[in-house]
Design a protein around this nucleic acid. Structure first.
Lengths: 252, 252
DNA sequence: TTTGACCCTCACGTCACGGGAGGCCCCAGG
DNA sequence: CCTGGGGCCTCCCGTGACGTGAGGGTCAAA
C-alpha cells in the first residue's frame, strides 16, 4: 500500500507544499514515483515523516533533523527513547516557566516589581558572572538573596497567602501608630519592628539586627520599596526605618 | 534606570538585531533615545519584552503578539493568568505526545506496526469523519478498538511488562504444541486458546467467542499480525486460528 | 588623543515554507 | 468519445523573523 501527497498531507496535518519542500531539500523523498511523475509514499516514508514532524515540533531545523535521521544506528527504539527524553526536558522547561509565572503573580500581588535578572531568569539558560556580580553588589555582598530564593521556591499558595496577610498586618500596625502620632521609638512601634524582623527571618532569610537596619535604609533609599510604604501614608517609609533602628538599639 | 540594547540583549538572551527588528516593526520601541540616537530601554520596556518573548516561545507570530499586548484591558495579572493557562495547555499537549511515544515503544516491542492514522494521531488535532469511518470498517464496526484505547491509556510500565510476558507465554505455548505435532483441537491447545481469550478480555476489551474467532481470522489475513506468528514458526498463524475455532466450538 | 567596545543605519541573505500560474493525468458522466 | 473537475506536476516569486556584514558615529578609559 502506498499513498499520494494529498493523502499523506491529510494524515499528517501538513500542506502538500510542505511535502514538496521536504522532497526538494532531500529530507523526505517518496520512495517511488508513478509513470506520470506522481509521488507515492510508502509505509516507511510515513515513518520518516512522523519523525520529521516530531523533531520539527520540538524546534529543530530541517537540516538538524536530516542529520538526526540519517545518523547510522537508526534503530526505531533508539529514536523513541530519544524523543521521550526530549519531551521530558521540554516539559521540565515549561514547568519552570509555570513556576516563574506564579512567582511573578505573587510579586505583582505584593506590589513589588522585579529586577531585570529576575524577569528573564527563565529565558537565559546562561548566567554570566558579570550580572551575578552586580546582583551581589546590589544586595550588599551577602547571600541573603540566594537563601531567600532557595526557601521561597518551596512555598505553596497557602504559604504565600499567609505571608501576604502577615505583611499587610505589619504595614497596618506601623501605619496606625504613625497616624496616631506615636513616636518611632515607642514601645509598641518597636514591637512591630521586631515582629517585622521575625517575619523576614521566618519566611525569607536569617535577618539579624544589623541586616534589619540595612533593610530599613533600603526602604527609604530604594524607590521600589519606598513606593510600597509611601503609598499607604506619606513619610511612613522613614518612620518604619526609624522604628527598626530604635528596635535594634534597644536589643543590643 | 534605563538600559542599552546590549544590556537588554544580554538579560533577555536575544541578539541586538532582534531588538532592532522589534523596533523596526513597532513591536517594542524603546521609550527613549539619547542625543546620539542610542536606544534606551526603560523598566516597562523590559516588561513588554518579557511578554513578547514569552508568547514567542509559545509559537505566536510577532503580529499576533502585538495584537495581544496592545489589547485594551492590559492588566499585568490578566497577562500572567493567560500565560499560566497557555503553559498548562502546552504541557498537556506534550504529555499527550509522551503517551503516544510510549505507546509506539510498546507497539515496537510487541512487534506490531501502526496504521497511518495511529502514527499521526498526536499531530492532527482534527479527526475527519472519512478516516474515522475507515478505522471503524477495519475493526468490524465494533467499538472494541475504542475500548482498548480507553483502557490501555491507564496502564503503567509494570502492566505493560506483564502483558508482554503473558503474550510471550501464550505464543510459546502454541508454538510448543505445534512443533510437538499436537493437533489444533487437542485439549491443551484449546486451553491455550482459552487463556489467550482471557488475556485479551482482561487487558484490552471484552472478547467473546465470536470476536475471538474473528481475531483468529485476522491472524491469518492481516499481514501485520501474521508476521508476528509466522516469524516464530511457519504455519503457526493458521494453527492458532484453528485452535481458537476449536475452543469456541467446544464452548458453545 | 587614540584605542577598543559599543552603537547606529542600510541592505542583502537565509530558512521554511505560502500561494499562485500554467499545464498534465485520469476517471466518471453525458 | 469527449468533456469536466479534482488532483498532481514544476516553476517561481513572496513572506516572516531574523542573520550577517559594510561603513561609519560615540564614548569612557588609558
Amino acid at each position: 500500500m502506498s499513498y499520494s501527497v494529498g493523502q499523506v498531507a491529510a494524515f499528517a496535518g501538513v500542506t502538500v507544499r510542505t511535502l514538496h519542500h521536504y522532497d526538494e531539500i532531500g529530507l523526505l523523498s517518496p520512495s517511488e514515483r508513478t509513470g506520470a511523475g506522481y509521488r507515492r509514499y510508502s509505509e516507511s516514508d510515513l515513518d520518516r515523516l512522523q519523525r520529521v514532524l516530531f523533531y520539527r515540533e520540538l524546534g529543530f531545523s530541517l537540516e538538524e533533523i536530516a542529520a538526526i535521521l540519517d545518523e547510522p544506528g537508526l534503530d526505531a527504539l533508539t529514536h523513541l527513547r530519544r524523543q521521550h527524553e526530549l519531551l521530558r526536558k521540554r516539559i521540565a522547561r515549561l514547568t519552570e516557566m509555570v513556576e516563574a509565572v506564579e512567582t511573578a503573580m505573587e510579586a505583582q500581588i505584593m506590589g513589588i516589581s522585579l529586577t531585570p535578572e529576575e524577569r528573564f531568569e527563565v529565558f537565559g539558560d546562561f548566567r554570566p558572572e558579570e550580572y551575578a556580580e552586580e546582583a551581589k553588589e546590589r544586595w550588599g555582598g551577602t547571600d541573603a538573596f540566594e537563601q531567600s530564593r532557595r526557601r521561597t521556591t518551596a512555598y505553596t499558595k497557602e504559604d504565600w497567602l499567609r505571608i501576604k496577610q502577615e505583611a499587610a498586618e505589619a504595614l497596618a500596625g506601623f501605619a496606625a501608630a504613625y497616624e496616631a502620632g506615636v513616636p518611632a521609638d515607642g514601645e509598641q512601634v518597636m514591637d512591630a519592628a521586631e515582629r517585622h524582623r521575625a517575619h523576614i527571618s521566618r519566611w525569607f532569610y536569617d535577618c539579624g539586627y544589623e541586616m534589619h537596619k540595612g533593610l530599613g535604609e533600603l526602604y527609604v533609599s530604594d524607590p521600589r520599596f519606598t513606593a510600597n510604604y509611601e503609598s499607604t501614608a506619606e513619610g511612613l517609609a522613614r518612620y518604619v526605618r526609624d522604628a527598626i533602628h530604635a528596635n535594634a538599639d534597644r536589643r543590643s
